[in-house]
Amino acid sequence: MDASWINGLIGGVLIGCAGAIYLLVNGRIMGASGIIGGLVDGSARAMWKERGAFLLGLFALPALLAATVLPSQTNLTPNLIVVAIAGVLVGVGTRIANGCTSGHGVCGISRLSLRGIVATIFYILAGGLTVVLFRHILGVI
């Protein structure tokens, strides 16, 4: 086993600390899909500064780190049709479910929210089945 689980754990703690700051200081749940979705569909115009600042940090610091000390790659599939379909599914799905991996997963499970736990079970099951179907059976990804 390689050491990537240590990086996973360290990164995870940072993610949890980010959520803790956003909760304890700003009084909000750190859910990426809600923060982004509320900005683009106009439902959270009153909080655009706070949300915009969050997204600026989310984009800019990784950009700086990736360009300097932590060269990174997404290794995303080159098939742009698959990428586009995946993007729509993620956008529509997270907004219908009212949360994604950060909101339902990190913030929901940590307060033992039934909704967060159920959402996480369903997106992991759906993700797992999708990988089986499209990687092992159809060979698309």
Partner: peptide
């Protein structure tokens, strides 16, 4: 919603947070 999201997540390996964090590279 979670089922649709999971399908997209499995297809590309990206969810909303990392999609923004990785936009520069």
């Amino acid at each position: 919603g979670s089922t649709l999201f999971g399908a997209g997540w499995g297809l590309a390996g990206l969810c909303p947070g990392p999609s923004i964090a990785s936009l520069s590279f």
